[in-house]
Write a protein that binds this DNA or RNA. Structure first.
Length: 733
DNA sequence: TGGGAGTGCTTTTTT
DNA sequence: AGCACTCCCA
C-alpha cells in the first residue's frame, strides 16, 4: 500500500483516491479534513496524475494555507512554495500582479484593508460634500462590499428610489477614486480577477487548462463571487474537490452562502458525496451533545459524528449569579485543573461576544493566571505601523491619497485643515491625486506642502536600499521615531516600529523570492510592493508570548478550526448566546446553533458550560434566562455543579514521488513510481480506468502478477473494488 | 496643537 | 460601562 494512504479510514481513503471527478466532501468537526485535503494533493502528484503547477488549492485564512503547505512539504519532496496554494485573496492578488495591465491596474497597486477602505470612503464623502449622517461610511462600505461580493458593478445594481440611486452613485464615485489612486480593496481583488478571467478568453483558457485539480477548503464559507470564480476556473474540465461542513457555517453574516454546497452538487452533477463522520478529537459525551444540539436545525445536509473513544466525562454545567461570579468560578476551576496536571495552554475560554472577555480578564488578572486574548488589534493594524506603511506606500505610489492623507500631517508639520482643503479642491479640479496637486497651492500652506512633497522625493531616492534599511530610513526621515520618542507612552510604539524592520527583514528572507513560473505570470513587483501586499493581506497575530503557557481566550468564531483538552463556554444565556440580534434575522437562530455546535466540538476531553442570572451589558443589568441550547443537551450527558436551574428548582443532582521533482529523493521508498506497472499488466497506480459496470475509477493499489494480478480501484460513488485483471475488463481512461 | 468635554455606539470577522 | 470619535477652546 502506498504509505501516503496508510492510517486513513475508509471514507478518508475513498476521498483521497477519488478518480478525477467533481466531489463534495462533508467533513465533520475533527474528522481529518485538512489531512484529506493535503493527502489528496500529495496522492495526485506522487502518482503522476497531475504535476504541482496543475494544482490550485484555496483556503480562507493564511493560517490554513500555511498549514496545508507545511504538511504537503512533509509528504512530498517538492518545493511547495511556488504552488498555487493560498487564500482566495492571496491568489487573486497573485493573478492581478501578474496581469496588472490586462486588469487595468498599475503594477504597484496597493491593497486597502477594511480600515483603509473606510477612510477612503470618508474622504470621498467629504470631497463630494455628502452628508455622512445620511450615508454612514461604515454602512456604505458594507453596501459596496456586498455588491462586489455578488459580482455587481454600479451599473448592474438596481435602485428604485433617490436614496438608493444616490448610494449607487457613491459606489461608482468610490470606484473611480480607487482607480485613480491605484488602490484595490479586498472585495475588489476578487471581483477584478474574476472579471479579468471572464473577459480575457485566452488568459482564462490558459489557467483553465493549467489547473487540472482545484481543491477548496471550508467550502461552506464561500460567498457567491468566490463560487463563481471557482466555477470559471474549473470551466475547462478541471476537477473541483470541495471540502466543507454545512454545520460549521457561521459566516453568513458576512456573505458566506452555504447554498453554494447544494448549488455545487447540482450544477456539477456531483455524484461523489463523501461523509467524514468519524471524529478523532472528542470523547463520546461531547460528541453526543454536539449531535443533539445540531439535530434541531432543519435544512442540513445530514451527518452524525461518532468516535471510537469512550464516552468520557459528563458535561459540567454551572450557574452563577453574575458575570463576576461566573469568572471567579472559572478561575477556581482552572486552578483545580492545573493541580490535576493540565497546562493552561490546553484550556480555552470561549464566549459569544468580545465584550464578555472583560470580566474574565479581570478575574484572571486578579488571580495572577497568565492568559492570552485572541482577536483585537493585530500587528499591521496598529496606528504607528499604519503610519509607517503609509510612508512606504507613498514611495511605491505617490497617488495613493489614503496614504497621503494619513501622514501628510503626521507627525504634525503645521499643515492644517485649511491647507488640506485647498489642496483637495485643487486635486478635484485637476482630477489628480493630492500629491500631484501640491504645486497648485500657494501661500504658507503651499510651502509646507511642498516641503512634504520634497520629503517624499527624498524617501523615494532611498527606494533602492534593501527593504529593512529602507524602512529604517523612512522611520527616521519621516520624523515618526522622533515623534514617539517625545511621547510619554511611546516606548511600546517605538518597539513596534523596530519590529516592523524585523518583519521586513524576515519577509525578504522568506518570501521575497520571485515567482517561479515567471514566464506566465510575470513578476510580483518589487520587494516593497510585495511587502505592502503582505502587510494588507496578512495582518499578523498581535500578541507576543505565543509560546507561553497561557489560558486561551477567544470568541467562538475565532475558535473555529482549533481544539483544546478543556473548553469553557461562558455566558450561555438567551439573548447573549443565542444573541438577541440574530433572532430577528432570517435563519439567525440556526446560525447561532451552528455556532454552539462549533463551540462544543472544540473540546477533546472536558467541556464546561456556564451561565449567569444577571449580567451587566451596555451599562445596564440584565436578567437572562439560561440559553435554550442548554436544554438541547440531553440530561444524561450532564452533571450540574450547582442546583439545577430552570424546571422548578430541583435539588443538586450530583451527581509518490518519483514522477516529479528530484528523482529518487523520495522519502517514501515504497511509493510506486510513475513508470512502475502493476504486475506487468500495463496499468499503474494513479491511472484512471473505465469499467463497464462501475464507470470511471482510479487504480490505488496492486498485488500479484501474471494471471493472479489484481488491482484495487476506487470507483467513486460505486465504491472501492479489488478486481482480477484476468477477469475484469478494464480499459485505460 | 492638544486637551477636555460631549456624543453615540455596542455580535460574530478574514482578507 | 467603556471606547472611539468629534468639536471647541486656549
Amino acid at each position: 500500500m502506498n504509505p501516503l494512504l496508510a492510517h486513513l479510514n475508509a471514507p478518508q481513503l475513498a476521498a483521497v483516491t477519488l478518480p478525477p471527478v467533481h466531489a463534495l466532501i462533508l467533513a465533520g468537526a475533527g474528522s481529518g479534513k485538512t489531512r484529506v485535503l493535503t493527502t489528496r494533493i500529495a496522492w495526485l502528484i506522487s502518482t503522476g496524475q497531475v504535476s504541482p503547477p496543475g494544482i490550485l488549492a484555496v483556503t480562507f485564512t493564511n493560517k490554513a494555507a500555511k498549514e496545508m503547505q507545511t504538511r504537503l512539504a512533509g509528504m512530498l519532496p517538492i518545493n511547495v512554495r511556488g504552488m498555487w496554494i493560498g487564500t482566495f485573496h492571496g491568489l487573486c492578488n497573485r493573478l492581478l500582479r501578474a496581469h496588472h495591465r490586462d486588469a487595468g491596474l498599475p503594477q504597484l497597486f496597493q491593497i486597502l484593508d477594511s480600515a483603509d477602505q473606510q477612510s477612503a470612503v470618508k474622504r470621498l464623502l467629504k470631497s463630494l460634500n455628502v452628508d455622512d449622517e445620511k450615508f454612514p461610511p461604515r454602512e456604505l462600505c458594507h453596501f459596496i462590499n456586498a455588491q462586489k461580493e455578488q459580482g455587481l458593478r454600479p451599473a448592474a445594481v438596481e435602485a428604485w428610489d433617490d436614496w438608493a440611486r444616490k448610494r449607487v452613485g457613491l459606489y461608482e464615485a468610490y470606484e473611480a477614486q480607487c482607480q485613480r489612486e491605484g488602490v484595490v480593496d479586498f472585495a475588489e481583488l476578487l471581483l477584478r480577477s474574476y472579471e479579468l478571467l471572464e473577459r480575457n478568453e485566452p488568459l482564462c483558457r490558459h489557467y483553465q487548462e493549467r489547473f487540472r485539480h482545484i481543491l477548496v477548503d471550508e467550502f461552506q464559507d464561500t460567498n457567491k463571487l468566490q463560487y463563481k470564480w471557482l466555477k470559471l476556473l474549473a470551466g475547462g474540465g478541471a476537477n473541483l474537490f470541495c471540502v466543507g461542513d454545512d454545520d460549521q457555517s457561521i459566516y453568513a453574516f458576512r456573505g458566506a452562502d452555504v447554498g453554494n454546497m447544494a448549488d455545487f452538487e447540482r450544477e456539477f452533477k456531483v455524484t461523489n458525496l463523501i461523509r467524514l463522520e468519524q471524529n478523532y478529537r472528542s470523547h463520546g459525551n461531547i460528541l453526543d451533545a454536539a449531535n443533539a444540539i445540531i439535530k434541531n436545525n432543519p435544512s442540513r445536509l445530514g451527518k452524525n459524528l461518532w468516535t471510537e473513544a469512550g464516552s468520557g466525562e459528563p458535561i459540567r454545567v454551572h450557574e452563577a449569579y453574575g458575570e463576576g461570579d461566573e469568572a471567579r468560578w472559572i478561575v477556581e476551576e482552572v486552578k483545580a485543573l492545573q493541580r490535576d496536571g493540565h497546562t493552561r495552554a490546553e484550556i480555552a475560554l470561549l464566549y459569544r461576544s468580545n465584550a464578555q472577555s472583560r470580566a474574565l480578564e479581570h478575574a484572571l488578572f486578579n488571580a495572577g493566571l497568565p492568559y492570552r486574548v485572541y482577536g483585537g488589534l493585530r500587528f499591521f493594524e496598529r496606528a504607528e505601523i499604519k503610519h509607517a506603511l503609509a510612508y512606504l506606500r507613498l514611495i511605491a505610489n505617490t497617488d495613493d491619497d489614503t496614504a497621503f492623507a494619513r501622514v501628510v500631517n503626521f507627525p504634525t508639520r503645521g499643515i492644517g485643515a485649511r491647507s488640506l482643503e485647498t489642496l483637495q479642491d485643487a486635486a478635484k479640479a485637476a482630477n489628480s491625486s493630492l500629491h500631484a496637486a501640491i504645486p497648485q497651492v500657494g501661500g504658507a500652506g503651499g510651502a509646507k506642502l511642498a516641503a512634504f512633497a520634497q520629503l517624499i522625493v527624498t524617501l523615494r531616492d532611498a527606494a533602492h536600499l534593501p527593504l529593512p534599511e529602507l524602512v529604517d530610513h523612512v522611520l527616521e526621515l519621516s520624523g515618526l521615531r522622533a515623534h514617539y520618542r517625545n511621547e510619554k507612552e511611546g516606548q511600546e510604539r517605538l518597539d513596534n516600529l523596530d519590529e516592523l524592520i524585523n518583519a521586513a527583514a524576515s519577509f525578504v528572507a522568506e518570501e521575497g523570492t520571485p515567482d517561479p513560473d515567471g514566464e506566465i505570470t510575470g513578476q510580483y513587483g518589487n520587494d516593497l510592493s510585495s511587502f505592502l501586499a503582505h502587510a494588507s493581506l496578512e495582518a499578523g497575530e498581535h500578541q507576543a508570548g505565543e509560546g507561553d503557557d497561557a489560558l486561551q481566550l477567544m470568541t467562538v468564531h475565532s475558535a473555529k478550526g482549533l481544539e483544546f483538552n478543556v473548553v469553557f463556554i461562558g455566558g450561555l444565556e438567551d439573548g447573549l448566546f443565542p444573541h438577541e440580534n440574530s433572532m430577528n434575522e432570517d435563519k439567525g437562530l440556526e446560525e447561532e446553533r451552528r455556532l454552539m455546535y462549533v463551540a462544543v466540538t472544540r473540546a477533546r476531553q472536558r467541556l464546561y458550560l456556564s451561565f449567569a442570572q444577571t449580567r451587566m451589558l451596555h451599562g445596564q443589568t440584565r436578567y437572562n434566562l439560561p440559553s435554550r441550547f442548554l436544554d438541547e443537551v440531553p440530561e444524561e450527558l450532564v452533571k450540574w455543579l450547582t442546583p439545577r436551574a430552570g424546571k422548578g428548582g430541583f435539588a443538586m443532582q450530583d451527581s509518490a514521488s518519483g514522477s516529479y521533482g528530484s528523482a529518487g529523493a523520495s522519502s517514501y521508498g515504497a511509493t510506486p513510481r510513475r513508470s512502475e506497472s502493476s504486475g506487468g499488466s500495463g496499468f499503474r497506480i494513479g491511472q484512471s480506468v473505465m469499467h463497464a459496470k462501475f464507470g470511471l475509477g482510479v487504480i490505488i493499489n496492486a498485488e500479484g502478477s501474471g494471471s493472479d494480478a489484481r488491482v484495487q480501484v476506487n470507483f467513486g460513488n460505486a465504491g472501492m473494488k479489488w478486481l482480477a485483471l484476468s477477469i475484469a475488463k478494464l480499459e485505460a481512461a
